[in-house]
């Protein structure tokens, strides 16, 4: 069976890859494009560790085929920092110690960024519901929520230009 030749955009860069029909976008990102920031927790849509954006929309990359990425704009955790400069969310996660093992963290960050782009001023309840599909076995969530709220506040006041 011939592989699909897929032309797409990842974090603003044009990318091409070959994939089998059954390969998920998560498989392609990790195994072919060596973008291992996106994590695999469950591979059944339950944990959110594989969260990416597709044309700005938050999705689980384990529940999307690689071939479906053709012509889309994919956003992954690798696109958050600009060079050495961390994204405000990443900075706040460090300051609040909002991660332990870190397996859920890329997914949480990508999901939180998607939220703040839509709603720069969310309530705590909104943050909790938005992130309900991002499971964390370590932190107990409170620090994650506090870090997101704090980053949102800084980003609104423009204290972080990047």
């Amino acid at each position: 069976m011939a592989k699909h030749h897929v032309v797409t955009t990842v974090n603003g860069d044009p990318v091409e890859f070959l994939c089998e029909s059954g390969e998920t976008l998560l498989d392609v990102l990790r195994n072919q494009l060596n973008m291992t920031g996106t994590k695999e927790g469950c591979s059944t849509g339950d944990c959110g560790a594989c969260s990416v954006t597709v044309d700005g929309r938050l999705v689980c990359s384990c529940l999307m085929l690689g071939v479906e990425a053709a012509g889309k704009k994919i956003g992954t955790i690798e696109g958050l920092a600009s060079g050495d400069k961390l994204h405000p969310l990443q900075q706040k996660f460090l300051e609040h110690a909002a991660l332990q093992c870190g397996v859920c963290t890329p997914g949480v960050l990508v999901a939180a960024k998607a939220l703040l782009e839509k709603h720069p001023d969310p309530t705590e309840t909104e943050v909790r519901y938005w992130l309900a599909g991002n499971l964390c076995r370590c932190t107990g969530y409170d620090k994650i929520i506090r870090a997101v709220m704090d980053a949102a506040k800084d980003m609104r006041s423009g204290r972080h230009a990047g």
Binding site: L58, V59, L63, A114, L115, Y129, A132, G133
Partner: peptide, 9 residues
């Protein structure tokens, strides 16, 4: 249905 991520699809 599902999470924000599931809602996207």
């Amino acid at each position: 249905i599902g999470s924000t991520q599931v809602q996207g699809r």
